[in-house]
């Protein structure tokens, strides 16, 4: 039994169906990627899982128990933590205070029984934003704010971590470190479910990937299978901007008459002229 099961969830806004019979899950100790074009319903799925959006139909289960109608804060007490695509840091507070708030909330009435979350500064250190500890959260760079949201989640020692585009705003080194951190968390037994546009990261760290299109899961599997799945390529990688540049340009160019083939020896010169190389997805 998976830690998280999303079972035939449908979400309709007025007449528009944002999520259509989506079924997928996440296992403890693994990293699961949720990818798909814009408007495919990924964030809506996260809202349904975390309790901010009630589905029109379908069920969400944690440890086999339905939580579909459970309010947000009680799901959190059951170990669901999430970050936001559009940031939700507490802007008037410093970075350290942000995490303290999370720790205070997590402690709650059961604070005495439960492990009171890690020490705040150690958490900031762990996600790599200790240098910003005394900055106000509305004055830090986006990437840092995303890491802050992660640190805030971790203060509650979640069992299921929902990360909505966590790496956008991070540079390459930071992204690599972030990938390490995710691996680390998974090996601690946390189930990580992540919506992410950086294909290198997704392909690199995920154990399983679900592809969402028009609110429906069109493919699930290991990164290697997803990469070669013709359905995914057709519906997603080749035509939408959601893929990392590498994949999408590959797919784009594959359809064009052959041009001067890649010569990796030129890489260095060319990137100085056209520094697209590190132009990672920033959305």
């Amino acid at each position: 039994m998976s830690l998280l099961e999303v079972d035939h969830v449908v979400v309709q806004f007025g007449g528009v169906t944002a999520v259509n019979e989506a079924t997928f899950g996440a296992e403890a100790g693994t990293i699961t990627g949720l990818i798909g074009p814009n408007g495919a319903g990924k964030t809506t799925c996260f809202n349904v899982i975390s309790g901010l959006q009630r589905p029109t139909r379908g069920q969400v289960r944690l440890d086999g128990r339905a939580v579909t109608r459970m309010p947000v804060h009680r799901r959190s007490k059951r170990g669901v933590g999430r970050t936001f695509q559009r940031l939700e840091a507490f802007g008037s507070l410093t970075v350290r205070e942000n995490v303290r708030v999370a720790r205070d909330i997590a402690g709650g009435a059961r604070g005495l029984v439960r492990r009171s979350g890690a020490d705040v500064d150690a958490l900031l250190e762990r996600v790599g934003i200790a240098a910003y500890a005394d900055e106000r959260a509305d004055s830090i760079p986006t990437g840092t704010a995303r890491l802050l949201e992660l640190a805030r989640c971790l203060a509650g020692s979640p069992r299921l971590l929902l990360l909505d585009e966590p790496s956008s705003g991070l540079d390459e080194t930071e992204t690599d470190a972030f990938g390490e951190l995710l691996r680390d968390l998974a090996s601690d037994g946390v189930a990580v479910l992540m919506v992410e546009h950086d294909m290198d990261l997704v392909m690199g760290v995920c154990d399983t990937i679900h592809v969402l299109d028009f609110g429906t899961v069109i493919a699930s599997g290991e990164p290697a299978d997803i990469r070669t799945d013709p359905l995914v390529q057709k519906a997603y990688l080749g035509y939408s901007d959601e893929g990392g540049e590498g994949d999408s340009w590959d797919a784009t160019l594959a359809d064009l008459p052959p041009v001067a083939h890649l010569d990796r020896g030129h890489e260095d010169d060319l990137t100085t002229v056209l520094p697209i190389a590190d132009g990672r997805s920033a959305r």
Binding site: G244, G246, W249, A260, R264
Partner: peptide
């Protein structure tokens, strides 16, 4: 453009 770019892009994606 395609010619100039393809080199760059493919190089960078590696």
């Amino acid at each position: 453009i395609l010619e100039t770019m393809s080199d760059v892009i493919l190089g960078g994606a590696a």
